[in-house]
Design a protein around this nucleic acid. Structure first.
Lengths: 200, 200
DNA sequence: CCTGCTATGTATAATCC
DNA sequence: TGGATTATACATAGCAG
């Protein structure tokens, strides 16, 4: 991009490194702005100079959570290098869904193949393994999903049966229906039937 | 930068907006990587697609506080319903393999949906999402795998052509073959042909 | 929907002031 | 040290398969 091609390694000359930093930094931020505008997406760029100065770009329409995080980061660095930010406790959901946890574990181990430090270059072998694991995980997910859909369908059927089959008959029947409705609400099911087309 | 200059405003055509997003996103991340290397500084780029997917670049030598913040950010976004899926372009293998790294992070964030603390009871919705993510990851993995197989096949063909087509003719031809072998070794291909049956 | 190609528009390394 | 200039390398918009 300049008079001649440069090697992709740290520029040793301090002066030209500084010049390049300045030029490329503004170039990067310009690109980020263009991307966010052209494609209507949220983009954030953070550049930390060696002297600790932070240059950033965050498009304005960006979700508040992002800017909050960045703000929090700035605050924390301004105040104290580490510490101060509330740690997010990660605690897996205890019981239920053995299949799911299996799936999660599968996925976890698959992840290691791709991100493990020992793999400088990813090998074909790893992709073969990954493919199998993902396929398995997918099957398990589909199984679980279908089970949920089935449960839901049965509940809905009961509900319909109650509403249509025995209309306005007894009060305690209506009570039963209401209970089912409550279950649905608890589980936060939404637009259940619209999901069916995605099954396969 | 293309056949003609484009206006700096949202690209209305959905298809070309998607294409531009893909191209410019990778361009931006490439620039970020170059800046971090050439100038020896910490750089982070976060891009959120409209579908909620997160593509990011963070140079590996980045100060722990930065990566911690970003990691924490990922967790927080994974936790809320909006589902930003992390697709990290990690430093590990410098060039190439964007797809793979994307896949790895995809898998990682999918895992969060299953193990995240905020999900007391897993919802149908989550399984729908998970299914899609796994399917995507699977497709990406297959794509990458097939690409590797293709490359490898061509190299092997060349090699065979050199060995059979021009047997024992010239020394510098043999040298050519050796070079190809070295490429194979570099990329750590292993047991190539045994993988074929699993292709589909 | 991708993948690849090519003509062009941009970014920028080197240079000059 | 900080711009301005220029020759090149690079990124990418529009197409084609």
């Amino acid at each position: 991009m300049g008079r001649r091609k440069i090697e992709m390694k740290r520029i040793e000359d301090k002066s030209s490194r500084q010049v390049t930093f300045s030029k490329r930094r503004s170039g990067l931020i310009k690109k980020a702005r263009e991307l966010s505008i052209l494609c209507d997406v949220d983009v954030a760029v953070l550049v930390f100079s060696n002297r600790g100065r932070l240059y950033e770009f965050v498009n304005s329409s960006s979700s508040s959570s992002l800017s909050q995080i960045l703000k929090r980061y700035q605050d924390s660095t301004a105040a104290d290098g580490k510490a101060s930010i509330a740690a997010v406790e990660t605690e897996s959901s205890p019981s239920s869904c053995a299949e799911v946890q299996t799936c999660g574990e599968l996925v976890k181990s698959v992840e290691r193949y791709l991100e493990g430090p020992e793999l400088e270059n990813l090998r074909l072998e790893d992709f073969m393994r990954l493919e199998r694991q993902l396929a398995d995980a997918l099957v398990q997910t589909r199984t679980r999903k279908e089970k949920l859909l089935k449960q839901e369908n049965e509940q809905l059927k009961d509900e319909v049966a109650n509403l249509i089959g025995i209309p306005k008959s007894r009060n305690h029947k209506d009570l039963g229906v209401n209970n089912l409705m409550e279950v649905d609400a608890d589980r936060q099911y939404s637009q259940p039937l619209r999901t069916l087309p995605l099954l396969r």
